[in-house]
């Protein structure tokens, strides 16, 4: 049996006295959309930060294709093909959309220690930039400065940058937050299209979207896994209904 694409084993992290994530086990397979849901403060974003190398776990390990990647700095995690998007838009506001994507696309090419060649001459990167922009539906805004975009477009740019990274694992932290209906649909379509060839971890509050797209769901409460399984299992789970879905 081959190793899972992404595996978390007994993962824990605490800030001061607060256990943001405790003893969490999770597996993501290739071709799978794995949604993480749970109330605010359940530790979902901390989990993404643990996967991406932004924070180091206090205990437990993370494996990528069977290799231990616990504690690697973010730039090495990305180099392995694990990319993330941010809940709060985290882009280069002063740069144009294509420059934003260029930085992402170039990152996967390894070193950018080229001093005397104009960046524009790098055709390979340029191609990836335009592909990423069109995947995210931003080709018309390629030369617009990011800070002049609408909020929804900035979210799309965030996705486009992730696309430009060409990761095999996508860590999506609330990609639909603040988007309109049409824009949301666009992002969902994109995720669906990417799913077969990627492993996707998705944090999302929009339950309709989550149940429509996820192959697997993990419900987190207070840093722990409450329940994990297919959407059908989660829908009928008594525990989940009580703790989380029960309030409707």
């Amino acid at each position: 049996m081959s190793d899972p694409l992404l595996l978390a084993q007994d993962l824990s992290v605490s800030f001061g006295g607060l256990h943001a994530v405790s003893n969490l086990n999770l597996e993501v397979e290739m071709g799978e959309v794995h949604a993480i849901i749970g109330p605010n403060g359940a530790g979902k974003t901390s989990l993404i930060n643990l996967f991406s190398g932004d924070i180091e776990p206090t205990r437990g390990r993370v494996y990528h294709r069977g290799e231990d990647i616990t504690g690697l700095p973010p730039y090495q995690v990305v180099a392995r093909g694990i990319g993330r998007s941010y809940q709060i838009t985290n882009i280069f506001l002063e740069f144009t959309c294509s420059q934003n994507c260029w930085l992402a696309a170039r990152a996967r090419l390894g070193s950018a220690m080229r001093f005397f060649v104009p960046s524009g001459r790098d055709i390979h990167t340029a191609k990836r930039v335009s592909e990423a922009l069109s995947l995210a539906g931003l080709e018309a805004k390629a030369n617009n400065v990011a800070k002049e975009l609408s909020y929804g477009e900035q979210r799309q740019l965030e996705i486009a940058m992730l696309m430009a990274l060409e990761p095999e694992i996508l860590l999506l932290d609330e990609p639909l937050a603040g988007l309109g209906v049409d824009e949301s649909q666009g992002v969902l379509d994109l995720v669906r299209r990417l799913a077969p060839e990627h492993g996707i971890v998705l944090i999302e509050h929009d339950m309709d979207a989550v149940f429509a797209i996820a192959d697997k769901l993990t419900v987190m409460v207070d840093g722990r896994v409450l329940e994990s399984g297919t959407p059908e299992i989660i829908k009928v789970s008594e525990k989940v209904r009580k703790a989380y879905l029960g309030d409707d």
């Binding site: 420059q99 170039r106 950018a112 220690m113 001093f115 005397f116 060649v117 104009p118 960046s119 524009g120």
Partner: peptide, 9 residues
């Protein structure tokens, strides 16, 4: 020239 190169970006 350096600022225009990949490194510069």
């Amino acid at each position: 020239i350096i600022l225009r190169s990949p490194f510069g970006r």
